[in-house]
Amino acid sequence: MNTEPNTVIEVEDLVTHYGTRKILDGVSMNVAEGEIMVIMGGSGSGKSTLLRFLMALEKQTSGTIRLLGQDIGSATQQQMFDLRKKIGVAFQGGALFSSMTVGENIMLPLFEHAKLDMMTMEIMARMKLEVVDLAGFEDLMPAELSGGMIKRAAFARAVIMDPKLLFCDEPSAGLDPVVASALDDLILKLRDALQMTVVVVTHELESVFKIADRVTVLDRGRILFIGTVDELRNNKSERIQNLLNRRPEDEIIDPDEYLRRLTGEEETGGDATL
């Protein structure tokens, strides 16, 4: 009997640009069903960009992305609509609608995608609020919540449809360590209970070591490392060790390129990453 988990995210030789600037350069990675994959890297490494492409929010220059077996480059509008119902996203800033209550925000995907009785939707929303420890907060407005509460409410909305894939962008950024740790616990709990596949972008090392099954490290738009947390810790690469030990790297200056940048002359290469 084949006990290998299914691959639910497949990225092959992904190249992306913003304008003429190359952001991702030949990225290939797979994520298995039920796996928590953490994407990390320094600022400007391309990790949030990779997440945006995995969420099918942007069109790549070349390469393929398959989500749940569906090539998103060749998917029809209907196929993408069906696929998006199986994807939950917890955005970095929460992205709650300020004019709607917390409960309405959480039920929004159900209003859009499901034909359920109002009572069923309300119970589902309250169940998810229980899960994220926000029971009784459904009638409040987002402006009445703290930063940590907004993140948790965003999680509740991301999982309201029991998605197969959950994408989280910097879930613990800007939170105090206790709330950040609680959010990590929540990610583990959701994966275990709902068998979700989770992709988390973060630069919080504590979070990486706590939740990741595997880690992808991006560096200047390229894959520097993919492996388990132990493999990451034991990796001898200087760049990886700099990242793990929070050592800043001195940028090697190309005087000609630097002068061109300062004087605003056209770049000839166009493969630098932001």
């Binding site: 939707m121 119970i123 169940m127 998810k128 029991d162």
Partner: peptide, 11 residues
Amino acid sequence: IDSSGIASLVE
């Protein structure tokens, strides 16, 4: 059984 099924049981 998903959350909508569980919600029906709760109701």
